[in-house]
Design a protein around this nucleic acid. Sequence first.
DNA 1: TATGAATGAGCATTCATTCAT
DNA 2: GATGAATGAATGCTCATTCAT
Lengths: 193, 193, 193, 193
Amino acid sequence: MTPRPARTALTKQKLFDAALRLLGERGAAEVTVDEIAAAAGVAKGTVYYNFGSKDALIDALLRHGVDLLAQRLRPDGDDNAVEHLVGASLEFFRDYPAFGQLLVSEMWRSPGQWHGTLSLLRDDIVAIFKEVVQRSADAGKLPEGVQAGTASAALFGTLLVVALDWQVFQPDRSLDQVRDSVMLLVRGVIPAA
Amino acid sequence: MTPRPARTALTKQKLFDAALRLLGERGAAEVTVDEIAAAAGVAKGTVYYNFGSKDALIDALLRHGVDLLAQRLRPDGDDNAVEHLVGASLEFFRDYPAFGQLLVSEMWRSPGQWHGTLSLLRDDIVAIFKEVVQRSADAGKLPEGVQAGTASAALFGTLLVVALDWQVFQPDRSLDQVRDSVMLLVRGVIPAA
Amino acid sequence: MTPRPARTALTKQKLFDAALRLLGERGAAEVTVDEIAAAAGVAKGTVYYNFGSKDALIDALLRHGVDLLAQRLRPDGDDNAVEHLVGASLEFFRDYPAFGQLLVSEMWRSPGQWHGTLSLLRDDIVAIFKEVVQRSADAGKLPEGVQAGTASAALFGTLLVVALDWQVFQPDRSLDQVRDSVMLLVRGVIPAA
Amino acid sequence: MTPRPARTALTKQKLFDAALRLLGERGAAEVTVDEIAAAAGVAKGTVYYNFGSKDALIDALLRHGVDLLAQRLRPDGDDNAVEHLVGASLEFFRDYPAFGQLLVSEMWRSPGQWHGTLSLLRDDIVAIFKEVVQRSADAGKLPEGVQAGTASAALFGTLLVVALDWQVFQPDRSLDQVRDSVMLLVRGVIPAA
DNA sequence: TATGAATGAGCATTCATTCAT
DNA sequence: GATGAATGAATGCTCATTCAT
């Protein structure tokens, strides 16, 4: 299926995996290209051959991570849409705590290297949230005056910081516990079907 | 008021001001001591004379910033306690957007240099929030099952994220608009007196 | 004419052409094999397949270029031999200005990679000049004390430098103008027949 | 006399000396900053503290070297001006063979790093030559049609290549021998007083 | 013959830190 | 108290070369 560039694709994947872990754990500036290459099991030059620069690798990584998150958010068979968003988000950040840290470190750095990329990516994610929240709004379930856009952005942001708080300060709590806590709060704003 | 070291205090203040702006905009690792010193109008050696190291300067800066925030949160005579927390927090992050960026970049960096300091500082802030939320809980205003601690941490995190979103993506909205939006959401969880 | 390896010869020629331009413009050390290959429209590996190394490519290029120059200098039936040398040299460096730059950059680099090759090549050229100058000497036309060898080397060097000066600092002058200027000087040393 | 920056001036001088020798011997691209720093007896960072970049160091070096040459060319008590130019030039390139190689390598590289600087410097030197040659022209000593500017540029170029030829291919000849050989040729164009 | 992904030694540059003044 | 020249370990990046296809 994958023609010739199978080797390249594999190399890039190895680099993504290694970079995702290291960059989240320690921040973009603290991780060296040497480390990423070593963790991926390739030579340093390979990073540059495939991505051109450290910044470009991180940029590609951010896009890749957000794609993964978007995939997990999309599905969901039937109702309980909000609960699915909450659960899927927490699950994603549990699986890739590194990525959450990377996001939160770079998302609001206005003249930052990746601000442009992250603005776009953030919009992608918030749009998915908004789709669900809007449905509740259409059903008249949102409190008077609450706008779907504002609520969606706030919900995503809250999930992000709650997930990080969980991983960093209360790693012993289970996913279910955290999701239930969050849902109790969310249900105050968006009642269940 | 400031006792003897008037000269030192001034120098430190100049360094705080310069460091706060630069570190927030570009992240701790991206800013050099040279830049901070230049922006403060002092020689590089002066940073080391006054703080000992770059890390120590940032550590002191974080403590200083959180003290400022704590001061603003504390006051407020009587009711509308929750609204005061929300308004004061948003106001603080509007006044010191760089500090919000710095916090969010470093707060969840587990093996980070300032993780220890930030854990303590976070506890200080959340404790203030919890005091207020607990009062609502005691008055039976929290939904069944919602814990004051969890709600407080989530509220602080949400405010942080919302404030940054505001400053970076919607700088045209007024403080009142943002505060009202947030309160609409919060009132779903913590109804007004 | 070119025997069997028509394909190889073509590839080598493409590489020569590309290398000549790039190496002259920017110096041997500043040009990468990638660039040469790209400019020649072949893959990088092809350079190594055909020449073995970057140094060997440059070595071959130098030999090739000096052969071309020697060919142009040789002909000329009868008199006006000196004028022919001057004219042919200037013409050659006008046609291959990059080669002149390459020569001048590497010719006097004592521990240089191509010093050996260039010494031999220089001798070839100077020998052709000497042949002509010696004829003038035999005819008693050289000033008392001037040696043919010294005068030949100086003449070649001067032509090289004058040609480069012309191309770089006075590209508007015509070949005839430059040749006439040089001949005025040369005639002071080697009078016409 | 030299106030405080005596240390800096000394450091720069040490770097100039070391760089002049190394760069001439092996060409700008072949010499590493590490080597220059080591040869100067300072740390690598010191090069960057004082010059900002390797390119800037070389640029400064070119200006410095041309100043030295200009100084040597200027003086000369009375007549024999042309002979002084020839002798002083050869002497300079004998003392700094490295510099001659550097000059010749970079002077005609049109899109080169230092082409701008070298154009200016070349003009300085040629102007000094022209002053002397013009005097001969005014005295009616130049052959009919020879222009002072052209002759000056050619003379400087010739001296440059002759000096390099001497150092590289005939290091056994004495300065006097070479100067006399050159003067024999020059006298054909510019007769003695 | 030709290709291009992968390599890794080598290099220019940065920057936190020191210390003599 | 303050300074800034000097340091050198660390880092991002380059590029000639190799080799499996």
